[in-house]
Design a protein around this nucleic acid. Structure first.
Lengths: 128, 128
DNA sequence: AGGATTGTGTCAGAAAGTGTCGTAAAGTGT
DNA sequence: ACACTTTACGACACTTTCTGACACAATCCT
Protein backbone atom coordinates (compact mmCIF):
# COMPACT_ATOMS: atom_id res chain seq x y z
CA UNK A 1 0.00 0.00 0.00
CA UNK A 2 1.19 3.44 -0.96
CA UNK A 3 -0.45 5.63 1.55
CA UNK A 4 -3.81 6.65 2.87
CA UNK A 5 -6.17 7.14 -0.04
CA UNK A 6 -9.87 7.57 -0.48
CA UNK A 7 -12.90 8.54 1.51
CA UNK A 8 -14.63 6.32 4.02
CA UNK A 9 -17.70 6.74 6.08
CA UNK A 10 -17.42 5.10 9.47
CA UNK A 11 -19.41 5.27 12.66
CA UNK A 12 -18.12 5.72 16.16
CA UNK A 13 -19.14 3.29 18.87
CA UNK A 14 -20.66 4.27 22.19
CA UNK A 15 -17.26 5.19 23.64
CA UNK A 16 -16.12 7.28 20.70
CA UNK A 17 -13.91 4.75 18.97
CA UNK A 18 -13.70 4.41 15.25
CA UNK A 19 -13.09 1.21 13.42
CA UNK A 20 -10.13 1.69 11.15
CA UNK A 21 -11.00 0.64 7.59
CA UNK A 22 -9.20 -2.51 6.59
CA UNK A 23 -7.08 -0.73 4.00
CA UNK A 24 -5.68 1.70 6.52
CA UNK A 25 -5.34 -0.97 9.12
CA UNK A 26 -2.75 -2.80 7.08
CA UNK A 27 -0.62 0.31 6.79
CA UNK A 28 -0.81 1.12 10.45
CA UNK A 29 -0.03 -2.40 11.51
CA UNK A 30 2.99 -2.70 9.28
CA UNK A 31 4.39 0.69 10.16
CA UNK A 32 3.27 1.36 13.69
CA UNK A 33 -0.07 1.71 15.45
CA UNK A 34 1.25 4.79 17.24
CA UNK A 35 -0.47 7.96 16.16
CA UNK A 36 -0.74 11.64 16.89
CA UNK A 37 -4.06 13.32 16.38
CA UNK A 38 -4.21 17.05 15.96
CA UNK A 39 -7.07 19.51 15.80
CA UNK A 40 -7.11 21.79 12.78
CA UNK A 41 -9.78 24.25 11.70
CA UNK A 42 -12.75 22.16 12.64
CA UNK A 43 -11.41 18.76 11.70
CA UNK A 44 -8.78 16.28 12.88
CA UNK A 45 -5.53 15.25 11.27
CA UNK A 46 -4.11 11.88 12.17
CA UNK A 47 -0.36 11.48 11.83
CA UNK A 48 1.43 8.20 12.09
CA UNK A 49 3.96 8.88 14.77
CA UNK A 50 6.93 9.06 12.39
CA UNK A 51 5.18 11.60 10.24
CA UNK A 52 4.45 13.69 13.31
CA UNK A 53 8.07 13.63 14.37
CA UNK A 54 9.08 14.93 10.95
CA UNK A 55 6.73 17.87 11.31
CA UNK A 56 7.85 18.57 14.82
CA UNK A 57 11.44 18.97 13.70
CA UNK A 58 10.46 22.11 11.88
CA UNK A 59 9.82 23.74 15.25
CA UNK A 60 13.21 23.12 16.77
CA UNK A 61 14.56 26.51 15.84
CA UNK A 62 12.00 28.24 18.04
CA UNK A 63 13.17 29.50 21.39
CA UNK A 64 11.18 28.15 24.32
CA UNK A 65 12.14 31.17 26.42
CA UNK A 66 10.83 33.66 23.94
CA UNK A 67 7.28 34.64 24.65
CA UNK A 68 5.88 34.75 21.15
CA UNK A 69 7.77 31.66 20.05
CA UNK A 70 6.41 29.86 23.03
CA UNK A 71 2.91 30.90 22.14
CA UNK A 72 3.34 29.44 18.70
CA UNK A 73 4.70 26.22 20.12
CA UNK A 74 1.82 25.98 22.52
CA UNK A 75 -0.71 26.38 19.77
CA UNK A 76 0.82 23.46 18.01
CA UNK A 77 1.28 21.12 20.95
CA UNK A 78 -1.87 21.93 22.84
CA UNK A 79 -4.03 20.69 20.00
CA UNK A 80 -2.30 17.37 19.69
CA UNK A 81 -2.88 14.06 21.41
CA UNK A 82 -1.15 10.76 21.24
CA UNK A 83 -3.27 7.79 20.48
CA UNK A 84 -2.96 4.31 19.23
CA UNK A 85 -4.80 1.80 17.14
CA UNK A 86 -5.84 -0.97 19.51
CA UNK A 87 -7.83 -4.00 18.44
CA UNK A 88 -8.23 -2.28 15.10
CA UNK A 89 -9.84 0.74 16.65
CA UNK A 90 -8.81 4.25 17.53
CA UNK A 91 -10.30 6.05 20.47
CA UNK A 92 -10.92 9.69 19.76
CA UNK A 93 -10.71 11.58 23.05
CA UNK A 94 -13.77 13.56 24.04
CA UNK A 95 -12.01 16.90 23.62
CA UNK A 96 -11.06 16.11 20.04
CA UNK A 97 -14.49 14.84 19.17
CA UNK A 98 -15.87 18.03 20.56
CA UNK A 99 -13.47 20.24 18.63
CA UNK A 100 -14.23 18.55 15.34
CA UNK A 101 -17.95 18.32 15.99
CA UNK A 102 -17.94 14.57 15.54
CA UNK A 103 -21.11 12.73 16.37
CA UNK A 104 -21.77 9.21 15.33
CA UNK A 105 -20.99 9.44 11.65
CA UNK A 106 -17.45 10.36 10.68
CA UNK A 107 -15.91 10.81 7.27
CA UNK A 108 -12.38 9.67 6.95
CA UNK A 109 -10.26 11.11 4.15
CA UNK A 110 -6.90 9.72 3.15
CA UNK A 111 -4.16 12.28 2.52
CA UNK A 112 -1.32 9.98 1.61
CA UNK A 113 0.96 10.29 4.63
CA UNK A 114 -1.81 11.30 6.99
CA UNK A 115 -5.57 11.12 7.05
CA UNK A 116 -8.33 13.38 8.25
CA UNK A 117 -11.48 12.95 10.28
CA UNK A 118 -14.47 15.11 9.49
CA UNK A 119 -17.99 15.68 10.62
CA UNK A 120 -19.80 14.94 7.33
CA UNK A 121 -21.62 18.27 7.21
CA UNK A 122 -18.46 20.28 7.74
CA UNK A 123 -16.61 18.47 5.02
CA UNK A 124 -19.44 19.10 2.64
CA UNK A 125 -19.38 22.82 3.35
CA UNK A 126 -15.64 23.02 2.93
CA UNK A 127 -15.58 21.22 -0.38
CA UNK A 128 -18.03 23.66 -1.91
CA UNK B 1 5.74 8.15 23.86
CA UNK B 2 6.90 11.26 22.12
CA UNK B 3 6.63 13.83 24.78
CA UNK B 4 4.00 15.80 26.57
CA UNK B 5 1.16 16.54 24.20
CA UNK B 6 -2.35 17.85 24.48
CA UNK B 7 -4.48 19.86 26.81
CA UNK B 8 -5.98 18.45 29.96
CA UNK B 9 -8.30 19.90 32.47
CA UNK B 10 -7.56 18.65 35.96
CA UNK B 11 -8.63 19.72 39.40
CA UNK B 12 -6.45 20.23 42.43
CA UNK B 13 -7.34 18.44 45.63
CA UNK B 14 -7.82 20.17 48.95
CA UNK B 15 -4.06 20.32 49.54
CA UNK B 16 -3.16 21.73 46.16
CA UNK B 17 -2.00 18.55 44.49
CA UNK B 18 -2.75 17.71 40.92
CA UNK B 19 -3.36 14.27 39.56
CA UNK B 20 -1.00 13.67 36.70
CA UNK B 21 -2.89 12.40 33.65
CA UNK B 22 -2.09 8.79 32.87
CA UNK B 23 -0.37 9.69 29.61
CA UNK B 24 2.10 11.97 31.34
CA UNK B 25 2.50 9.64 34.25
CA UNK B 26 4.05 6.98 32.06
CA UNK B 27 6.67 9.40 30.80
CA UNK B 28 7.56 10.67 34.25
CA UNK B 29 7.78 7.21 35.72
CA UNK B 30 10.04 5.90 33.01
CA UNK B 31 12.31 8.90 33.05
CA UNK B 32 12.21 10.21 36.58
CA UNK B 33 9.55 11.61 38.88
CA UNK B 34 11.93 14.45 39.78
CA UNK B 35 10.76 17.81 38.51
CA UNK B 36 11.52 21.48 38.55
CA UNK B 37 8.67 23.92 38.47
CA UNK B 38 9.22 27.46 37.40
CA UNK B 39 7.07 30.56 37.25
CA UNK B 40 6.82 32.26 33.88
CA UNK B 41 4.59 35.13 32.81
CA UNK B 42 1.60 34.17 34.88
CA UNK B 43 1.80 30.43 34.44
CA UNK B 44 3.97 27.51 35.54
CA UNK B 45 6.40 25.46 33.53
CA UNK B 46 7.23 21.99 34.73
CA UNK B 47 10.55 20.54 33.66
CA UNK B 48 11.49 16.93 34.14
CA UNK B 49 14.74 17.21 35.98
CA UNK B 50 16.89 16.19 33.00
CA UNK B 51 15.25 18.78 30.81
CA UNK B 52 15.87 21.38 33.46
CA UNK B 53 19.54 20.51 33.52
CA UNK B 54 19.72 20.90 29.76
CA UNK B 55 18.19 24.35 29.96
CA UNK B 56 20.43 25.35 32.76
CA UNK B 57 23.45 24.62 30.65
CA UNK B 58 22.39 27.27 28.24
CA UNK B 59 22.71 29.78 31.04
CA UNK B 60 26.25 28.88 31.99
CA UNK B 61 27.74 31.17 29.42
CA UNK B 62 26.21 34.17 31.13
CA UNK B 63 28.64 36.28 33.08
CA UNK B 64 28.20 36.07 36.83
CA UNK B 65 29.68 39.56 37.21
CA UNK B 66 27.53 41.24 34.65
CA UNK B 67 24.67 43.06 36.24
CA UNK B 68 21.93 42.40 33.71
CA UNK B 69 22.99 38.81 33.20
CA UNK B 70 22.88 38.34 36.89
CA UNK B 71 19.41 39.78 37.04
CA UNK B 72 18.21 37.36 34.44
CA UNK B 73 19.76 34.45 36.27
CA UNK B 74 18.22 35.51 39.52
CA UNK B 75 14.82 35.80 37.97
CA UNK B 76 15.15 32.34 36.58
CA UNK B 77 16.34 30.63 39.74
CA UNK B 78 14.35 32.56 42.26
CA UNK B 79 11.11 31.37 40.77
CA UNK B 80 12.06 27.74 40.49
CA UNK B 81 11.16 24.94 42.88
CA UNK B 82 12.05 21.32 43.00
CA UNK B 83 9.20 18.94 43.28
CA UNK B 84 8.33 15.38 42.64
CA UNK B 85 5.52 13.17 41.47
CA UNK B 86 4.44 11.08 44.45
CA UNK B 87 1.64 8.53 44.32
CA UNK B 88 0.87 9.87 40.87
CA UNK B 89 0.40 13.39 42.15
CA UNK B 90 2.37 16.60 42.18
CA UNK B 91 2.07 19.04 45.01
CA UNK B 92 2.14 22.61 43.82
CA UNK B 93 3.57 24.82 46.56
CA UNK B 94 1.37 27.66 47.74
CA UNK B 95 3.71 30.32 46.37
CA UNK B 96 3.56 28.87 42.88
CA UNK B 97 -0.18 28.42 42.97
CA UNK B 98 -0.42 32.03 44.00
CA UNK B 99 1.87 33.26 41.24
CA UNK B 100 -0.07 31.42 38.55
CA UNK B 101 -3.45 32.27 39.99
CA UNK B 102 -4.42 28.62 40.25
CA UNK B 103 -7.63 27.80 42.00
CA UNK B 104 -9.31 24.45 41.78
CA UNK B 105 -9.43 24.03 38.04
CA UNK B 106 -6.12 23.86 36.25
CA UNK B 107 -5.38 23.46 32.57
CA UNK B 108 -2.38 21.39 31.77
CA UNK B 109 -0.73 21.89 28.40
CA UNK B 110 1.88 19.56 26.99
CA UNK B 111 4.86 21.23 25.33
CA UNK B 112 6.77 18.17 24.25
CA UNK B 113 9.73 18.26 26.62
CA UNK B 114 7.96 20.19 29.34
CA UNK B 115 4.41 21.02 30.25
CA UNK B 116 2.61 24.06 31.54
CA UNK B 117 0.04 24.72 34.21
CA UNK B 118 -2.49 27.45 33.66
CA UNK B 119 -5.41 29.08 35.31
CA UNK B 120 -8.07 28.41 32.65
CA UNK B 121 -9.05 32.06 32.25
CA UNK B 122 -5.46 33.22 31.75
CA UNK B 123 -4.78 30.64 29.11
CA UNK B 124 -7.86 31.65 27.25
CA UNK B 125 -6.77 35.27 27.18
CA UNK B 126 -3.31 34.36 25.98
CA UNK B 127 -4.47 32.18 23.16
CA UNK B 128 -6.56 34.94 21.69
C1' DA C 1 4.41 20.25 74.60
C1' DG C 2 0.07 21.55 72.05
C1' DG C 3 -2.13 23.22 68.13
C1' DA C 4 -2.20 24.83 63.56
C1' DT C 5 -0.61 24.30 58.97
C1' DT C 6 1.21 21.72 55.29
C1' DG C 7 2.40 17.40 53.10
C1' DT C 8 1.49 12.28 52.02
C1' DG C 9 -0.82 7.68 51.22
C1' DT C 10 -4.91 5.33 50.28
C1' DC C 11 -9.44 4.17 49.07
C1' DA C 12 -14.22 4.11 46.96
C1' DG C 13 -17.33 5.62 43.47
C1' DA C 14 -17.80 7.53 39.02
C1' DA C 15 -16.21 8.17 34.55
C1' DA C 16 -13.48 6.94 30.70
C1' DG C 17 -11.00 3.56 28.02
C1' DT C 18 -10.31 -1.37 26.26
C1' DG C 19 -11.05 -6.34 24.58
C1' DT C 20 -14.06 -9.52 22.56
C1' DC C 21 -17.71 -11.53 20.22
C1' DG C 22 -22.00 -12.23 17.42
C1' DT C 23 -24.39 -10.51 13.81
C1' DA C 24 -25.01 -7.83 9.75
C1' DA C 25 -23.20 -5.98 5.69
C1' DA C 26 -19.96 -5.77 2.05
C1' DG C 27 -16.71 -7.81 -0.91
C1' DT C 28 -14.66 -11.85 -3.57
C1' DG C 29 -14.23 -15.94 -6.53
C1' DT C 30 -16.33 -19.31 -9.24
C1' DA D 1 -26.25 -15.89 -8.64
C1' DC D 2 -24.39 -18.43 -5.04
C1' DA D 3 -21.48 -19.68 -1.28
C1' DC D 4 -17.73 -18.09 1.18
C1' DT D 5 -14.60 -14.70 3.24
C1' DT D 6 -13.70 -10.42 5.07
C1' DT D 7 -14.98 -6.20 7.20
C1' DA D 8 -17.89 -3.12 10.00
C1' DC D 9 -20.97 -2.40 13.79
C1' DG D 10 -23.13 -2.57 18.26
C1' DA D 11 -23.17 -4.47 22.62
C1' DC D 12 -21.39 -6.02 26.76
C1' DA D 13 -18.14 -6.94 30.41
C1' DC D 14 -14.05 -5.66 32.20
C1' DT D 15 -10.08 -2.53 33.39
C1' DT D 16 -7.96 1.71 34.15
C1' DT D 17 -8.06 6.41 35.40
C1' DC D 18 -9.86 10.48 37.79
C1' DT D 19 -11.71 12.71 41.72
C1' DG D 20 -12.82 13.90 46.33
C1' DA D 21 -12.36 12.56 50.89
C1' DC D 22 -10.30 10.94 54.84
C1' DA D 23 -6.65 9.70 58.03
C1' DC D 24 -2.22 10.16 59.35
C1' DA D 25 2.75 12.25 59.36
C1' DA D 26 5.82 16.02 59.44
C1' DT D 27 6.82 20.75 60.30
C1' DC D 28 6.42 25.16 62.27
C1' DC D 29 5.18 28.45 65.82
C1' DT D 30 4.30 30.06 70.19
Amino acid sequence: MNGFLGTYSVSLDDKGRLNVPAKFKGLLERDSPQLVMCVMDGFLIVFPQREWAANEEKLYHLNAFDKSDRNRLREFYARATECEMKSGKILIPAAQREAAGLKKEVTLVGMSKTFELWAPDRLEKTSK
